[in-house]
Design a protein around this nucleic acid. Sequence first.
DNA 1: TCTTGACGTGGACTGTGTCCATCGTAGGAT
DNA 2: ATCCTACGATGGACACAGTCCACGTCAAGA
Lengths: 140, 140
Amino acid sequence: MSDLLERLRGRGWRLTSQRRVVAEVLDGDHVHLTADEVHARAAARLPEISRATVYNTLGELVTLGEVIEVSTDGRAKRYDPNAHHAHQHLVCTGCGTIRDVHPTGDPLADLPAEQRFGFAVAGAEVTYRGLCPTCAGAAV
Amino acid sequence: MSDLLERLRGRGWRLTSQRRVVAEVLDGDHVHLTADEVHARAAARLPEISRATVYNTLGELVTLGEVIEVSTDGRAKRYDPNAHHAHQHLVCTGCGTIRDVHPTGDPLADLPAEQRFGFAVAGAEVTYRGLCPTCAGAAV
DNA sequence: TCTTGACGTGGACTGTGTCCATCGTAGGAT
DNA sequence: ATCCTACGATGGACACAGTCCACGTCAAGA
């Protein structure tokens, strides 16, 4: 994570306490927080941080390719710091929990040329959906 | 489309002019309108129709499985009447245009058991992204 | 230490969607 | 053909996610 901060500094980022806190909150595996959740956790360490700053910082991290924006439910976007290993998402239809998963194969290979309609197809996102073990158990 | 209305009536739907207009607006191929676009087109034929009614009707059509809700950009959800043929979506990163596409293979087959983490995986949505011919041309 | 422009702040604002009390009407009953 | 009534429509208030802006602050180079 300090790697991340150094990398950003190398790109001309001014290293403020707010940005540091946001980056720290996003550290870890299987982290998929909404902007408001990031704000709440950041505010626990830096009470006066504003929502606008969190949104700005998240937007910059996305632009820089350090964080991925995930929108699995049409509600709040979630921010995934696991940007350097290609992966897809498995979402629980009960509680909304998100897991990073690594399918075999390349989804792009499944889209033949005649199904591309002249588009320069650059990527594919796959969202798997199903009940997680906890929700499946609770339903019994 | 009258098929649709008859089917819904068979399920106990009360067939109001508002519902009829919403269903008619959604008729066609490669239709991916937002709720507000549906409302605007419906209002052209039935000026006093309210937004709440459009939202209610769209929600019911989704629940009944006659329309699919698509959320490709984290902004407004779009409504796709092509609910009876499995398909995926190809989205232009420039203008947001959406095409229905039919990839080969089954994305579910690409998620091995050890990547399912105990989830009862029920489905997968794939969103392909790239520049459409029009946007690619305009960029030159 | 000083300077300065990039950054942070909070509050107003927009877009999307939901809720609710009340009114209207589709369609069965007579 | 008319009446009844529960289901549906209405529109305005509300909630949530996100953006914008004018102004104040401060990181970092000189």
